[in-house]
Amino acid sequence: MNITLKVWRQAGPKDAGKFETYQHDGIVEEMSFLEMLDVFNEKLLEAGTEPIAFEHDCREGICGSCGCMVNGRAHGPKDGATLCQVHMRSYKDGDTITLEPFRAKAFPILKDLVVDRSAFDSIIQAGGYISVRTGAAQDANMRPVEKAIADEAFDAATCIGCGACVASCPNGSASLFTSAKIAHLNMLPQGEPEKYKRATAMVTAMDDAMFGACSNHEECEATCPKGIGVEYISQMNKNLIWGELFEHDS
């Protein structure tokens, strides 16, 4: 299989960056997308050119390191998959693949396809936890949690923090990311005491980190590799309003 690669090349945070076009041949369909890039990077290296920088680690869809825009879509053509889970059998001979970094005001580009997503950490640091000290817990089965609630909390907690939702949002909003963490914790009885404080603190941190607001485009849900839904965003807003109405500490 032969492919034309159009790749965003940017040497560093302050460089302008531009697309470069390359021909890449000898691709087999069993290769993963990232293995296709590995092989191409080997070619660049042999030619004395600096390889394309891209992030990746676990290569099984769970660490959240990988991802870029592939033909305008975060993580490429497959629903429910990160870029490392895309295989070249999704493409055919002669295709052109355009690769760009995740673009958002809150995600500055560091090099080529690598962006800085540490703004996500600052949102979690603001309140994405239940305040419990090590050693202070009661027996785990003392407080039963309804299975349906535990399962839903789990679904919300499967977010991998990849940033696809932000990159896909016309406003560069982190609402899906933030609301999923709030939903996970606020849904559980353990998370109840800090419910409103958590929502307010995390949303404030999100705004401070230069993420945009949600205006219901729902592009985030469409590209989330973990299938996280926008219903959490409305729950988040409800938490915010209730927090304000009842003047809970924030």
Binding site: I130, N141, P144, A150
Partner: peptide, 22 residues
């Protein structure tokens, strides 16, 4: 045994049975 207690208190959503127990 302490690990499980602590992780549940942190909000780790372990699988549960229909009765709500782990």
């Amino acid at each position: 045994v302490d690990i499980i207690d602590h992780c549940v208190a942190q909000g780790v959503p372990f699988a549960r049975e229909y009765g709500g127990l782990l």
